[in-house]
Nucleic acid binder design. Structure first.
Lengths: 237, 237
DNA sequence: CGAAACCTTGACTTAGGTCAACAAAAGTGG
DNA sequence: CCACTTTTGTTGACCTAAGTCAAGGTTTCG
């Protein structure tokens, strides 16, 4: 499963469905178009910023980030992808980002010339890109206008199925207000995604812990005690 | 012309071509698909965030911004569009942004159902979206990792044809290192685009003026004295 | 001409960055 | 399985870039 393990805690009433229909509504599937399937292990680079774009990729399993570097080493993670997301499109130019896995991943590749030919693929692409665009818009708000706490809260909320993201269904049953997240990112990766420093991320997480909103079981295993409180901290309510 | 008037100053040797082939390589053109052409005046809203998406739009003439608001009024301008750019795609959902003109504009509209049918349109769309995505990626770096000066310098550089943006050709002839920009945005709009406050934008502009890098003829009419110096300040060199 | 909108500048505050020390995991090799 | 190094995360003290607040200057427009 993507990015987090939807191991629903299900204390209280009915257990959450956990993961099946996640936030991003449209997902690609290249399987029918053949192409090569590759496996990558954690922190493997699929391509570097500046490489010639020759293939279109679909993330089939695992989790992957796209990032850009400034010459002095500052990094911005611009997208975090989950299964069904596509990447690598470049209109005949070089890749504008580096693509690096966050977990062991399975990636499906298709030659870009083939993509150019298939009407069906074009249609799928439009849908996927439209969605990714929306995510990027929302992330621009986060980067441009949100405080550190709001950024971290938003980040966590996006990892809860049907919450935080585009298809957010609002507060669920009052009983089941908790959730287990498995982050597949280091503090540094989270910081580079949220436009913060590693120290600030760490401090905010400690603070949320102190306030009882979350419980940190391991650095990358976080239990949300009160989803609704967290949601209030995203700046969006 | 988009967003700035490419009134080349052409002091020194040969005049710059000014504007014809701007940075963004792929441009749409819906004219052949019919659809309605509408004119909007400055600061007109084409649609609001939350409206049902029914049409796809192409900006034919003028300049337009897409922005999102947080409930407390904070605003983030997520895209600034120029002629040939498309907007309004939403995969059957509501619009995720408000679309508001920055200048008097001409917009071509096509029903989304028609878009769904046309293979040719889908192909154009993929190209356009891919480009817009790259711009969004770069903007994420700006918002997440750049200082105020770097943001303003990057913003100005993007308004110089063939510089700053994707198809940047690097330093041109040494002789012609100046350029006239016509911003079609208020300080507030620029601030909301760059993730800064109006005061910070104002201060940075004053500072660039003091340092002789730019000359401010009118608040929205800025002459770049030394494009290369400005380019050095973008954080990308 | 007067009002409204927009821009600039200064004085002060603060959120988040930097630097540094240490703690806790996670590999690695004997 | 246990030292030992490396990587990753946490916390504190301090600093600074950019935000806030406030006053005044310019432009624009009715």
């Amino acid at each position: 499963m993507a990015y987090f393990e939807a191991s629903v805690t299900g204390q209280g009433s009915g257990a959450r469905t956990g993961g099946a229909a996640l936030c991003a509504p449209v997902k690609a599937s290249f399987s029918e178009f053949g192409g090569k399937t590759s496996e990558y292990e954690t922190h493997a680079v699929v391509y570097y910023e500046g490489d010639d774009a020759k293939r279109l990729y679909e993330l089939v399993r695992g989790s992957l980030m796209l990032y850009k570097l400034l010459p002095d080493g500052r990094r911005q993670v611009v997208e975090v992808l989950r299964p069904g997301d596509i990447f690598g499109l470049a209109n005949g130019n070089e890749h504008d980002c580096t693509a690096e896995t966050l977990t062991d991943s399975v990636v499906q590749e298709i030659d870009l010339r083939q993509v150019e030919r298939s009407d069906e693929l074009q249609r799928t692409l439009t849908k996927c890109l439209t969605n990714q665009m929306r995510v990027l818009h929302e992330h621009a708000v986060l980067l441009g206008r949100k405080s550190a706490v709001e950024r971290v809260a938003s980040f966590f909320m996006h990892l809860v199925p049907d919450r935080g993201g585009l298809g957010c269904t609002g507060p669920q049953d009052e009983e089941n207000d908790s959730f287990d997240l498995q982050l597949h990112m280091t503090r540094q990766e989270i910081a580079d995604y949220l436009g913060l420093t590693i120290e600030t991320v760490s401090r905010v997480v400690s603070d949320l812990k102190r306030r009882g909103v979350i419980r940190v079981d391991k650095a990358d295993k976080i239990h949300l005690n009160r989803i609704c409180s967290l949601c209030q901290m995203t700046g969006m309510h």
